[in-house]
Each structure stands twice: as C-alpha cells, then as structure tokens.
Amino acid sequence: MRAAFDLSPLYRSTVGFERLVDMLDQATRVESMTNWPPYNIEKFGDDAYRITMAVAGFSPDEIELVQQESALSVNGQKHAEPEDTQVLHRGIATRAFKQTFNLADHVKVTGASLENGLLTIDLKREIPEALKPRRIAISTGTAPEAQPQIIEHQPEAPSKAA
C-alpha cells in the first residue's frame, strides 16, 4: 500500500494549476480498479498516441468508449452468462471496469479496434491553425499604415472593403 501524501501546500502555492494538482491527488489515492485492466500508453512522433488495454474475454459490444471534453472513459460490462453454462474454474476476469484517461487539449480519438483480447485506441493531437505559433516579420518602415508581413503560413482573415 502506498503512503498518502498531503498535497494541500501545492494548492496554497500555485495559481492556475488546480487541474494538475487534482490529477496528482487522484494518482496518490489507492483505488482497487485503477490497476485493472492493465494498459500501455505509447507515443508515436510529436502528435500521435495509442492506448492498448488487455480486455480478454470482452467483445466490442461489451465495451464503451466515451470522449467528453478532456476525458476519455473506457467502460466494460460483461453480458450475463447463459444459464446452462457451468464454470468449473474462472481464470479470465469478467468483472466490470471503468478506466478514465485525462487528455491534453486538442487530443482526439481517431480510432479504436479490438483484436486478440487487446483494445487499441488511437489518439491524435490536432492543434487548430489559429492557435499554432506564427512568426511575424519586423518592418523597417516608419509609415503608420505599414502592416506587419507574415512570413509563415497563416489562415487568411476575411478582407474588409475600403
């Protein structure tokens, strides 16, 4: 069992990091369902991610993926077994699970598949063009009507008629 940490000093000494401190606080709590089902998080390049979860025994219709704002919830609920089935030994876990992943801004689920007992969820960070950094040239002219020249590609704003 992990020792509990008091994160209250962080709340008193930080501004604007409440979400980060809340995530740290949640991570320090011992919860029985956080370790099951086991999963991997992989990063491919700068903007592509993959979550792989071991969900042996679950079919696609028993798993629900929901992305709501910056959270991805993965819920699994097994259907009831037929009454004529008698299980002599249960080694494959069939308990319900709920796993929530906090996603960074602009990260979207691009696909999901279930193969060989592994649920694979592909994610991609898609930063809107308006939020990407852009480089602006500095003009040397002293005329007040001189407009800064954009060096890198920027979406064109609608022009106003003069």
Rank of each mutant, 00 (worst) to 15 (best):
N116Y: 00
R95G: 11
M33H: 12
T14M: 08
M1Q: 02
I41Q: 09
Q77H: 15
I127D: 01
E64V: 15
A161C: 02
A162P: 13
P155R: 07
M33S: 13
D22V: 00
E129N: 04
A96Y: 06
T52C: 12
R2V: 10
D61F: 06
P148T: 08
S59A: 07
I63A: 02
D122I: 00
T120D: 05
R2E: 13
I127K: 04
I151N: 00
V30G: 03
R134C: 10
W36M: 11
E62T: 00
E81F: 12
K132Q: 11
I63W: 06
A161E: 10
V74F: 01
L119H: 00
I63D: 04
A93S: 15
P37N: 02
F44P: 10
G111E: 04
K108C: 04
E129A: 12
H79C: 06
K132S: 09
P158K: 08
I136Q: 08
G111T: 05
E152V: 13
M53F: 00
A104C: 05
R95S: 14
Q77R: 14
T28C: 09
I92A: 14
T140V: 10
E42N: 05
E156H: 08
V74Q: 05
V74M: 06
K43S: 12
A80R: 10
T142C: 03
D6V: 10
Y49K: 05
V21P: 00
K124P: 07
W36A: 14
N102V: 14
F58H: 04
A162W: 14
T110S: 15
D84I: 11
E115A: 02
E81N: 12
R12M: 14
A4I: 10
L103N: 00
S113I: 03
A161P: 08
A157F: 09
Q77W: 11
E64I: 10
G91A: 09
R90I: 03
V55M: 02
F5T: 14
E31A: 14
E64Y: 05
E156C: 07
P158D: 04
M53S: 02
T110F: 06
D47Q: 04
P82C: 13
I63K: 03
N75Q: 09
E31M: 15
S32L: 15
D25I: 02
R95H: 12
Y49R: 06
W36I: 13
K98I: 03
Q26M: 11
Q154L: 06
P38Y: 00
E69I: 07
K132R: 11
G76H: 04
M53V: 01
Q147N: 10
V30M: 07
E156L: 13
A157P: 02
Q154K: 06
A162K: 12
L20H: 09
